[in-house]
Amino acid sequence: MKQVGIFIYEQVQAVDLAGALDTFGQANEELKKLGRPAFYQIHLLGLNTQPVRAENGLKLMADVALNDCPALDYLVLPGGSGNQQLQQNPVFLHWLCSQDSQLEKLISICTGAFLLAASGLVNGKTLSTHWRFAQQLQDAFPAVQVNAEALYHKEDKYYSSGGMTAGIDLCLAILEEDLGLHLAQTVAQELVMYLRRSGNQTQYSRPLTVQASEETRFIQLQQWVLDNLHRPIGLAQMADKACLSERHFRRIFTQRFGLSPSRYLEQLRLDRARSLLLCDGYSLERVCQECGFSGANSFGRLFKLRFGFTPMDYRVHFGG
């Protein structure tokens, strides 16, 4: 049984905490239904066992103080505004560093990456965090390479994710490593999530029904399309990747997923475009190139038709 510690603190982000807790906890429930023993034993850890309040006001209490912490296999560091104080707390940082040698996985969610960076354990490595805080993290910890786009990132035993629901994507990926695709998919369905938003997908991608497919060929097709969005992609290529004739592919794809292959490809391009519009350094022309649109004018018209904003208005409204 894996011993999983989830660290809580004053002004922790409740969604980051609950996402990890529910994902690993639901895995145990699904194993129980199968007559199998629980795989994870979960401990809520704190500097002490005094009550704390999450950012949303939820009152929380740790089960175990750091001084009494059992030997852990996995440690989860949720985000939250309160981590600004923890980054300067020598007791916490010393404890975190002391855990490193025994841990199989050290996991940060959203701005929990600041705690991981403050420890110095990931100097020279890459971390993901919420896109809004990426530059702040990079400025504060220049020895770390920050990935502002990826939903989550794994390097050695260090795992990090973007904001909130991306933390659940990361935990689902860990479930798949530990317990296999089928169980991870079952947990995702119980959480009303779509499995297999891979870590290299950009933050703010819309969950797609293809990800819930049990057929490997459609999952592989999606990954190929995502890897080649900057290129022209036609129905013939998609059908070939799925090992189907064009006619059969169009019919079966539309039946399974409720949209035509061309509309699906359009949605993938638009989802990628929405993500890139919120990232620094991406001009409209570069977004078009990365997403496979032939020109800014046609892209702008399609974007406004689908989302009600021009690309630039979207950037201003959602980019902060």
Rank of each mutant, 00 (worst) to 15 (best):
G5V: 03
I6M: 09
I6F: 10
F7C: 01
V15K: 02
L17M: 11
A20N: 09
F24G: 05
E30Q: 13
L34I: 00
L34S: 14
A38T: 07
Y40D: 03
Q41V: 01
L44K: 13
L44E: 03
L47F: 01
L47D: 10
L47V: 03
N48R: 08
T49C: 14
T49R: 15
Q50L: 12
P51H: 05
P51L: 04
R53D: 00
A54D: 01
L58K: 04
A65P: 02
A65K: 10
D68H: 12
D68M: 01
C69E: 04
C69R: 04
A71M: 07
Y74A: 05
V76N: 08
L77W: 07
S81N: 05
P90V: 10
H94T: 15
H94K: 12
S98L: 00
Q99C: 15
Q102D: 11
Q102M: 11
K105G: 02
K105D: 04
I107T: 09
I109Q: 09
I109M: 08
T111V: 07
L116M: 15
L116T: 02
S119Q: 08
S119V: 06
G120K: 12
V122L: 09
T129Q: 09
L137A: 08
A140C: 13
F141N: 08
Q145R: 14
N147V: 07
A150Q: 11
K154E: 10
D156N: 13
Y159R: 06
S161I: 05
G163S: 15
M164Q: 03
C171Q: 09
L172M: 10
A184V: 10
V187Q: 07
Q189K: 08
Y194M: 10
R196V: 03
R206C: 05
P207W: 06
A212Q: 14
E214R: 10
I219E: 01
I219A: 04
L221W: 01
V225L: 15
V225R: 11
D227M: 05
P232F: 06
L235T: 14
L244M: 15
L244Y: 02
L244E: 12
E246L: 11
E246C: 03
E246D: 08
E246I: 13
R247V: 13
F249M: 06
F249E: 04
R256I: 01
F257A: 01
L259W: 03
S260N: 06
P261V: 10
P261T: 00
S262C: 00
E266D: 00
E266T: 12
L268Q: 15
D271R: 00
D271S: 15
R272C: 11
R272K: 15
L277Y: 09
C279R: 13
C279K: 11
D280C: 01
D280H: 13
G281R: 10
Y282H: 14
S283G: 12
E285N: 08
R286F: 00
C288T: 06
Q289W: 00
C291L: 06
C291H: 05
S294Q: 13
S294C: 06
N297A: 15
S298V: 12
R301K: 14
F309N: 04
T310R: 02
T310G: 13
P311Y: 10
D313A: 15
Y314N: 05
H317K: 14
G320H: 14
